[in-house]
Design a protein around this nucleic acid. Sequence first.
DNA 1: TTACTAATCTACCATTTCTATAGATTATGT
DNA 2: ACATAATCTATAGAAATGGTAGATTAGTAA
Lengths: 143, 143
Amino acid sequence: MLSHKAKYGLKAAFYLARQYEKGPVLISDLAAAEYIPKKFLEHILVELKKQGILYSRMGKGGGYSLAKPPDKIFLGQIIRILDGPLAAVQCVSKSAYVRCVECKDERTCEIRKVMKHVRDATAHILDRTSLADAMHTKLTLTK
Amino acid sequence: MLSHKAKYGLKAAFYLARQYEKGPVLISDLAAAEYIPKKFLEHILVELKKQGILYSRMGKGGGYSLAKPPDKIFLGQIIRILDGPLAAVQCVSKSAYVRCVECKDERTCEIRKVMKHVRDATAHILDRTSLADAMHTKLTLTK
DNA sequence: TTACTAATCTACCATTTCTATAGATTATGT
DNA sequence: ACATAATCTATAGAAATGGTAGATTAGTAA
């Protein structure tokens, strides 16, 4: 399950994408517009800034904006920053591989086999869908 | 991320699948064989039994076994029972739909759009892969 | 009917993670 | 110098997670 944190982060990113090149946005405005607790949002934005997704300025006329154009920011990046690896089991993660302690033989582990497929399928979507894609493309909603 | 609970549950299910039609298996044996804390495993097995995945008998000669053949039990069922819905956001779940409180318009929500794809992709895999499939089929490991 | 076996039930607890808030501080523009 | 707006540090409540303990009930075999 996506945490609130990641959900808020995505919402913020989309909001900033809609304001892209229209000047910086105040945390307060963002929080109010997307119904996100302001103080919580602060933490989220700082993390996204540290990872190069957002840009910010202090003081008068300051605020937050995207550090890159909306078609260069992918949902997978944002989710990994805020929720950690996409993989359902760590032994199948590319960005944060860790061997399962109780695993006797990784090569024959059925769970690993299947979860690797799942990981690849979700990464395939989330690492190719940019903010711009999600906003503009009419993604065919399967039923 | 898959919880330990679900991981243990899957491991237990695969173990019982390998013992299918060879008589009941003791919780203690299962726990020892798969390195699962016995008392914790108890809870997991009960849940899987309640949902019709497993069958059990008390007393001498008792133990646990699969309630259905390994090709009739799908990983998605087990994971849902132990970890809840597969969907990353509830508003996209088929088995446990809940509207997102802060959502202004579900039809235009970008997060929902993308996460629906992700849900469909993972459900497509997990609801079609049976214990037997995962054990026998040589699933092509994508790279 | 007694003894043994093995699952079941109820309750509890420690730890971590998640979500959120408070207040002081630092940077910036005018 | 002043107002503004992000940043930093610390904290705290709530929920989820992982795990344990002990008494109880159901079934088997003698």
